[in-house]
Design a protein around this nucleic acid. Structure first.
Lengths: 340, 340
DNA sequence: TTGAAAGCGCTAACAT
DNA sequence: ATGTTAGCGCTTTCAA
């Protein structure tokens, strides 16, 4: 183990004190350094290839300069890395790093991310939703320990929490409006039988658009699918078989939209001629199907970026009065392809 | 900011010294603690809700208990999170955490993960490949600073490096053998025009199986596709249009396999009746296409898990003589669905 | 404008 | 079997 270069070494090399080295290297404003001294220090640091020991600094300043990103157990696969990249980019400027946390409980029933915080490994936490509810107990733990936090895509507007959400209402709305504008006038909305805020907002968005364009829409119906396994598949087939003279379907889950494309092909339903299909989430594979799937994409990168920036602000403000709440909702965007 | 509980507080509460607290809580073997003392300490810690300050410990022990996971720029989306989960699980037992690193260079041309290491934020690093070559320069940096590391899926067997690879040869081999066993005797191998070890191994695997089952294979040809954009698409269509009496195609990239399914549908080629399709990588979407895509899946979770375990071993051995090299290659596994 | 020195919370060598 | 204490590398108050 090669002994590493410390600020002491740099101080000696530059012929100054360790304090001065710290002042120079951290560019401390309230201390004036003679330009030539500054230069000496810089030169010495460069010569010795000095790297500040971030652990020592963290101990002194009581800031780990790392934030926890918590992915709950059944995290959606491809979404995750996109959101992560957004967070990473947001952290760059302030030189925070990301520590990956789970929400698993240890032997004493404490969640990993809480433990990391108590052990001072992280300064704050971003919680990513995963179709799972955050219990009131967890929320309490979060706030009572005043752990700086932001909740991403949880849609818990009633709580006093910093949140970055996806505007699912808007997604449902623009997808529907798009269909109407394209001339589709008999529309089905196909959604899973699950009562989470995300799906409720989508439904409201769709309904709002439908009623708004009332004069242009002849028929509209809602079909609720099973959630998983065979039920899920079956309800897609059922919906397709009973499409009657409906000309377009909005499908909230992208997997279901894929499946619908496949089933339609089996049933000799041409897309989009017999039935247009649009899903309320995007995916890498949308370009690879036949026909290419039209989607209304989620702002995944953006929710990452925004939540990163927000959390850093919260951490910085933590010493001051932390009164103001931030609750943002980011828009979805249309990506029409061949299926509409 | 509530003052946090330190080992000093616990010591006072238990009426012992801080050293004793440390001995008890860290379960130090070479020190004997009277059972009742131990109990007193435990009780005090529990009562005060003590959490060791991991930063302070890290400073003292010169171990951050975190490893860096480096995802290169254009990381494949859904692969990433699966590998990550494997790593996370591997780290659990030894209580290491994951710090996400990029390989971006700072103003001085130093890569982020190197800087994190020099700043003592991480004890070692796992590098995940992403169809990009690791330069000799980077390799040198890695080894010369003796930064504990393991390279995942880089296929750099000539170098003296710890590596966890995917056995692409085996993947190509079993996929081909499977086809032959199913009775397909006129086979196309469709691969991208890119000379990376991964694709070369796949090709060898396919060829090996073909020659091994020589008597059962009537025709075999290799079609090389364009890599990106239109060229890529065009070559898939071209391959399909010129399939002649070939009855099966092995496609190395899963995206291309998807595209092939879509194009086949357009061209009225029935899968698998007219042409069987199997891809040499898996994906979540394989179950959603029509027909469902047969795949030969990559051991993504496993390479994560194995690399995590390996890196921890390397870190632990670092003080001792670190002579032995570990180079593993993990097998792919068949997932036959409807397209074969 | 710069330096001396305390101290963050922990571990571990050494003393008892 | 347990206590004393030095010191990890840094920042920052206070003194010069």
């Amino acid at each position: 183990m090669k002994k590493s270069v410390t600020s002491k070494d740099v101080a000696k090399e530059a012929g100054v004190s360790r304090a001065t080295v710290s002042y120079v290297l951290n560019d401390v404003k309230k201390v004036k350094i003679k330009p030539e001294t500054r230069e000496k220090v810089m030169a010495a640091a460069r010569k010795l290839n000095y790297h500040p020991h971030s652990i020592a600094r963290a101990l002194k300043t009581d800031k780990s300069m790392s934030i926890g990103v918590v992915s709950r157990r059944n995290i959606a696969e491809d979404r995750f890395s996109i959101v992560l990249r957004g967070i990473k980019d947001a952290l760059k400027e302030d030189k925070y790093s990301i520590t990956l946390c789970s929400d698993e409980e240890d032997l004493n029933g404490n969640r990993e991310y809480i433990n990391y915080y108590l052990a001072k490994r992280i300064d704050g936490v971003i919680l990513l939703s995963a179709e799972e509810v955050l219990s009131r107990y967890d929320i309490k733990k979060l706030t009572s320990r005043n752990l700086p936090n932001v909740l991403v895509d949880y849609h818990l507007k009633d709580e006093k929490l910093n949140t970055i959400d996806i505007d699912y209402f808007h997604g449902g709305y623009i997808a529907t409006r798009f269909l109407v504008e394209q001339g589709y006038d008999k529309i089905i909305y196909f959604a899973p039988a699950i009562s989470i805020p995300q799906e409720e907002e989508r439904l409201k968005g769709v309904r709002t658009a439908i009623s708004e364009f009332d004069s242009k829409v002849i028929k509209f119906k809602e079909v609720i699918s099973g959630q998983t396994g065979n039920k899920y598949m079956d309800s897609i087939t059922y919906m397709l078989k009973n499409k009657d003279d409906y000309t377009a379907v909005i499908i909230s889950w992208v997997d279901a939209a894929y499946k619908a494309l496949a089933e339609a092909s089996k049933l000799n339903i041409s897309v989009p001629e017999d039935l247009a299909v649009i899903s309320l989430a995007g995916t890498h594979y949308a370009d690879l199907s036949y026909p290419k799937l039209s989607t209304c994409d989620l702002p995944l990168y953006d929710i990452g970026y925004e939540s990163g920036k927000l959390l850093i602000n919260k951490i910085k403000m933590d010493t001051q009065n932390d009164i103001e709440l931030v609750q943002k909702s980011l828009s979805c965007f249309l990506n029409p392809r061949e299926s509409t």
